[in-house]
Computed example of a mutant assay.
Amino acid sequence: MEKTYLRVQDVKEIIGVSESKAYKIIQALNKELKSKGYIVVAGKVPTKFFKEKYYC
């Protein structure tokens, strides 16, 4: 079963970046979601949205 949300460690492993960069990516994605009217969870990003934005 696929995770609904990705955490910092997940993003870090998927795209091979540092922990601080993973946090910045999650913040940027959540900022975009929030501007579209979605409720966001700090430190997590929806898997579906992440996959739309990053080619994995």
Rank of each mutant, 00 (worst) to 15 (best):
I39M: 10
Q27A: 06
I14A: 07
F49E: 14
K3T: 08
S20L: 05
C56F: 12
K48R: 13
G16W: 01
F49V: 15
K51H: 11
Q9S: 15
K36E: 15
N30E: 05
T4Q: 14
D10N: 12
E2I: 12
Q9L: 13
K3H: 07
E52G: 00
D10Q: 04
K44P: 01
E2C: 07
S35C: 00
V8W: 04
F49S: 08
K48L: 13
E2M: 10
Q27R: 11
Y38D: 08
V8K: 08
K51L: 10
S35T: 07
M1E: 14
Y23M: 06
D10V: 00
L29F: 01
E32N: 09
E13I: 07
L6T: 02
V17G: 10
K24T: 14
K44F: 08
Y5E: 06
F50Y: 05
Y23K: 13
L29S: 09
G43N: 06
F49P: 05
K36F: 08
A22V: 04
V45M: 00
N30Q: 06
Y54K: 06
K34S: 12
I39V: 15
L6H: 04
V11K: 02
K21G: 07
T4H: 10
K21Y: 09
K34F: 13
S18H: 08
F50W: 03
K31Q: 13
Y23A: 04
V8D: 05
Q9G: 15
M1R: 12
E19H: 10
Y5I: 11
Y38I: 05
K21I: 03
S35M: 11
T47V: 07
M1V: 14
T4C: 11
V41P: 01
Y54G: 04
I15W: 00
G16I: 03
Y55D: 13
Y5H: 09
R7N: 15
V11W: 00
D10W: 02
L33M: 15
A42L: 11
D10R: 07
K44M: 09
V41D: 08
I26S: 00
